[in-house]
Simulated assay, not measured.
Amino acid sequence: MDEPTAPATARPEPLPLCASGELVEKGNAFVFDVLHFREPARAFVLRFDGQIVAYLNRCLHVPTEMDWQYGEFLDSGKEFIMCSIHGAVYEPLTGRCAGGPCGRGKLTVIEVIERDGQVYWYPSRDTQPAFA
């Protein structure tokens, strides 16, 4: 007799974040609230080299929000995501530490997609919408 198979885990539906036009190349990020491991947190999405990327707003060095001012994550040369607290820098397209006190780590990626003039994000097992 065959063993019953577990149902395939369906990918969650993407949730709308913002209009594509709100993300200017190397400009301010769109910041949004999430629950990370059931704790309130913030995440951000920005456009860099024509791509949209999103990360949990939490530095690897010290788990604190990184933006200089609300939505401002890039360094003055607009080359890296830079933590405003201790200067850890991250590669915008990968989230990998590029220098400073973040070691060999990587920012927590939030999966995003852009289609039909809208930016969406995919909740994950660890990162869920902040609203019910």
Rank of each mutant, 00 (worst) to 15 (best):
G105K: 10
C102P: 04
W121H: 03
I85C: 13
S76H: 13
D116G: 11
E25Y: 08
G87M: 00
P14V: 15
D116W: 09
G95S: 05
G87Y: 01
K78S: 02
F80A: 01
P4H: 10
C102H: 09
A132N: 06
M66Q: 00
M82V: 13
E22L: 05
E13C: 01
E65Y: 13
R96V: 04
A41W: 04
T127D: 04
S84T: 10
G71N: 10
I81R: 06
T9A: 15
T64P: 02
A43H: 04
C18K: 03
G105P: 08
T9W: 11
Q69V: 13
P7Y: 01
V34D: 02
P16I: 13
I52N: 05
T5I: 14
N28P: 13
L46Y: 09
P92W: 05
F32Q: 03
G100T: 06
C102Y: 09
D75E: 09
D2Y: 09
I85T: 14
D33E: 11
L15E: 14
R38A: 09
V24N: 00
H36Q: 08
L15I: 15
P101N: 12
L15F: 06
E72R: 13
A132L: 10
L35D: 04
Y70D: 10
E39V: 11
P129K: 02
L46A: 00
M66C: 06
V45L: 01
G99Y: 08
T94Y: 09
L56A: 00
R38I: 00
H61L: 06
T5A: 15
F131Q: 08
L23S: 02
E79D: 07
T94S: 14
T5S: 12
G99D: 02
F131C: 03
A43Y: 06
A43Q: 08
V62E: 13
P63Y: 03
L107V: 07
H61P: 12
K78I: 02
L74T: 05
R58S: 13
L23V: 03
N28T: 09
M66S: 05
N28Q: 14
A43V: 02
E39H: 08
E39D: 15
A10Y: 07
R38C: 12
L23F: 04
E3P: 11
S76Y: 14
K78G: 05
A132W: 07
C102L: 13
V45D: 05
D2P: 15
Q128L: 08
Y122F: 15
I81L: 15
G71Q: 03
L74H: 05
K26F: 02
I110W: 03
A10I: 07
A6H: 12
R11L: 13
P129Y: 00
R47W: 09
T108Y: 14
K106V: 08
L74K: 01
N57W: 10
F80K: 10
T94A: 07
W121D: 00
G50C: 04
W68F: 15
S124P: 00
I85K: 14
W68V: 05
A41K: 11
D67I: 04
P101H: 12
V89H: 07
L23G: 04
H36T: 12
W121M: 00
V31T: 08
R11S: 13
C97I: 06
E25A: 08
L93W: 07
T64M: 14
L35Y: 00
G103I: 08
A132G: 14
L107R: 07
G117D: 05
Y122E: 07
V89P: 06
V24Y: 10
S124I: 01
I110M: 12
P40T: 05
C59S: 10
A98S: 15
P123H: 04
E39I: 09
E25D: 10
